[in-house]
C-alpha cells in the first residue's frame, strides 16, 4: 500500500473511532462488528487476533459490571470496544516510516510528530514486554488453573508494569541526553 492510501485509511479509521463514540443501538453494534472484522483482517492469524482481544474484553466486562450495579448505560462497553479496535487499527495502518521521514524541525508539526513517535515507541515497549513476560511465564507454568497458575499470572502482570516503567525511564533518559526532551 502506498503511503497516501495508508494515511487516508488511518485518518478514516480515526474518524470512525470518534464517530462510534457517539453511537448507540444498531449503528453502534454495526460499528463494533465492523471494527472487529477490521481487527481480524489486520492480524491475519485468527488465534493471535482473538487472544489480543482478551485484555480489552476484560476491561469492557468490568465496565459492563459497573454499569449493571450503578445503572449506567451498557452501551458504554460496546463503545469502548469499538473505539479501541478502530483506533488501534488506525495506529497499525498509519504510514509511520513515511511520516517520520517527513519530520523537519522547521515544520510546525515537528513537536507533535515527535510526540506521536514517542507514543508509538511506548506502545511497542508495552507490547514487547507483555509478550516477553507472558512467554517466559508460559515456559514454566502449564495452564492458568494449575497450582501457582493465578499467582504467577498476577506477578507476571506486575513485572510487566515494573519493566515497562524501567524502560520508559531509560527512554526518557536517552532522549534527554540527546537533547530532544528536557
Amino acid at each position: 500500500m502506498g503511503h497516501a492510501l495508508r494515511l487516508a485509511a488511518s485518518g478514516g479509521l480515526l474518524a470512525a473511532a470518534v464517530i462510534s463514540a457517539r453511537l448507540a443501538g444498531i449503528p453502534l453494534a454495526a460499528a463494533a462488528g465492523a471494527a472487529f472484522a477490521i481487527h481480524l483482517a489486520l492480524r491475519r492469524r485468527l488465534r493471535a487476533a482473538l487472544l489480543s482481544l482478551v485484555p480489552i474484553a476484560m476491561f469492557a466486562g468490568v465496565i459492563l459490571a459497573l454499569g449493571w450495579f450503578g445503572g449506567a448505560d451498557p452501551a458504554l462497553a460496546a463503545r469502548t470496544i469499538a473505539v479501541f479496535l478502530l483506533s488501534t487499527a488506525a495506529f497499525r495502518v498509519a504510514p509511520w516510516k513515511w511520516a517520520a521521514s517527513q519530520l523537519s524541525p522547521r515544520s510546525r508539526l515537528y513537536t507533535f510528530g515527535l510526540f506521536l513517535l514517542f507514543v508509538r515507541h511506548f506502545a511497542e515497549i508495552l507490547a514487547a514486554e507483555s509478550r516477553r513476560t507472558l512467554q517466559a511465564r508460559g515456559l514454566c507454568v502449564r495452564g492458568t488453573l494449575g497450582r501457582g497458575g493465578f499467582s504467577s499470572l498476577g506477578w507476571a502482570v506486575v513485572s510487566i508494569f515494573r519493566r515497562t516503567l524501567l524502560r520508559a525511564e531509560r527512554f526518557h533518559a536517552a532522549q534527554s541526553l540527546a537533547g530532544i526532551v528536557s
Partner: peptide, 29 residues
C-alpha cells in the same frame, strides 16, 4: 551537550521506524 553515552541496554536510544531516521534526528534537530 558535548558528551554522548551508549547505554548498557541501548534499545531505547533508538525509536524511529527506520534506523537511518534515528541517526538523522540529532542532525535535523
Amino acid at each position: 551537550a558535548r558528551l554522548a553515552m551508549v547505554f548498557q541496554n541501548p534499545e531505547d536510544q533508538l525509536f524511529m521506524p527506520a534506523l537511518v531516521q534515528d541517526l538523522a534526528l540529532p542532525l535535523l534537530n
